[in-house]
Amino acid sequence: MADKHTRSMPYRTLRTAGGATVVTLQGEIDVLAAPALAARLDVLTAGPCPDLVLDLRPVSFIDCAGLGVLCRVRNRAQARHGRLRLVADSSRFLRILHGTGLSGVFDIHSRWPEDFTGASVADPVSASAG
């Protein structure tokens, strides 16, 4: 009997008073979750000058497919004269970035930037990957 791998990739989109879109990612960012996540982030980086913050603190695991999504969204934001910031405080995640040569590629903050303290939920979404 074949295993059916389905899982929900929950995330919340926030809009701040400063104009940045903040997405809190949770759980595992892997080959199963990457396609749905990439599709959602493509929408968020489709316009001119996207300002996107990905909060990775609740992420428990990320593989090369997840790193690929982060690189893709960074490249899309930069191509549209926007920016991507990551919020990550996991030493494991930072070691992965260092080991893959990506540590200098991303704008990384260890805690929630002060300018996002006034953020409010604007678009709760749950996507399925599988």
Rank of each mutant, 00 (worst) to 15 (best):
N75E: 15
Q78T: 13
A79V: 04
A79H: 05
R80M: 12
R80C: 02
G82S: 12
G82E: 01
R85P: 00
R85I: 11
R85E: 13
R85T: 15
L86F: 04
L86A: 03
V87I: 15
V87A: 11
V87L: 10
D89K: 10
D89G: 15
D89C: 12
S91N: 10
R92P: 00
L94H: 10
R95W: 12
I96T: 14
I96E: 12
I96A: 05
L102G: 01
S103V: 04
S103W: 06
S103C: 01
S103N: 10
G104Q: 06
G104K: 08
G104H: 13
V105T: 14
V105N: 04
F106W: 03
I108A: 00
I108S: 00
I108C: 14
H109T: 03
H109D: 11
H109R: 06
H109Q: 10
H109M: 13
S110M: 02
R111H: 11
W112T: 03
E114M: 05
E114Q: 09
F116N: 11
G118D: 14
A119L: 08
A119Q: 08
A119R: 13
S120T: 15
V121R: 09
V121N: 08
V121H: 12
D123Q: 11
D123T: 13
P124Q: 06
P124F: 01
V125R: 14
V125E: 02
V125L: 09
S126M: 13
S126D: 14
S126R: 15
S126V: 15
